[in-house]
Simulated assay, not measured.
Amino acid sequence: MISWILLLILLISCVCAGALEVNVSQPLYQAEESNNVTMEWKFPPEPDRSTNSLFIECHLFTDHRVSVLYHLHEGIEFPGSQDEQFSGRVQCDRDVLREGRLRLHVSRLRTEDSGLYECEVMTKQGWGADECRLTVTATVAQEPHTTTTVSPEPESQKEWLVLLIALAGIVIVIMVIVVVILVMRQTTRPEIIAVITAVTLVVTGVVTGAVIKLYNNQL
């Protein structure tokens, strides 16, 4: 309420002085939630004068309400008139006010900060205002990246080497048994030869099964 009364008094006092040209640097600002943004307005500078005669008031207009963003009167900031929505999140670059530049830094943006921003500036030259729009988009949560672990394929060369060694062993065993059988046919009865032949078949089957099992384990 006090800021509106002060604004009314200054408006009355500046009627005779005329209009002041105030221009926003860009009409549209876009940013993501939780980021920062800097909005800038320009007005005729008064380098030979202090900021004690400067009045600035900035508002956010939405469909539901009007909020005070920043308030400066005769060079003194009034944080008490600032809306709670912007408490601790708005800073003005006081060093460039003499240059005719109003720069407002809004940090930790929220989606409800979206809307129309208007800044009114009053000096001894007059009164003026300009507006811009800020759009704050919500941050999209990224899905956690899942890494699929692929088991390394068995080395083909190693598989073939193992297989060849096993087959070579089988061939050697069979050849030895055959030689023994051929020798014993001349000096041994047929019953013994039959037993040796049966044992040879059993041993060959066991070795062959072991090789097959080893190969399957490697796959």
Rank of each mutant, 00 (worst) to 15 (best):
I2V: 14
W4C: 15
I5R: 10
I5Y: 09
L6V: 15
I9A: 14
L11E: 13
L11F: 08
C16Q: 14
E21R: 03
V22S: 01
E32M: 11
N36M: 05
W41H: 05
P45D: 08
S50V: 05
T51L: 14
N52W: 00
L54M: 09
F55C: 03
I56K: 00
I56G: 03
C58D: 02
C58R: 02
H59G: 02
F61Y: 15
T62Q: 09
D63N: 13
S67D: 14
E74C: 07
G75K: 04
F78M: 12
Q82W: 00
E84L: 09
F86W: 08
F86H: 03
F86C: 07
V90K: 01
C92Q: 05
D93C: 04
L102P: 00
L102V: 10
R108D: 15
E112I: 12
D113L: 09
S114C: 14
S114H: 12
G115F: 09
L116F: 11
E118R: 07
E118G: 05
E118N: 06
E118T: 15
E120P: 00
E120S: 00
M122H: 08
M122G: 04
G126V: 02
W127M: 10
W127C: 05
A129Y: 07
E131G: 05
R133N: 07
T139V: 13
A141L: 15
Q142H: 12
Q142Y: 07
H145E: 13
H145T: 13
T146A: 01
T146V: 09
P154R: 08
P154Q: 10
P154F: 11
E155M: 12
K158F: 04
K158E: 13
W160Y: 13
L161Y: 10
L164G: 06
A166Y: 01
L167N: 12
L167V: 14
I170M: 14
I172F: 13
V173C: 14
V176I: 15
I181E: 08
I181S: 05
M184K: 11
T187H: 13
I193M: 00
A194R: 12
V199D: 03
V202Q: 04
V203M: 08
T204W: 04
V206Y: 12
V207P: 01
T208E: 02
G209I: 10
G209Y: 08
A210Y: 10
V211D: 01
V211M: 09
K213F: 07
K213Y: 08
L214Q: 08
N216V: 11
L219V: 10
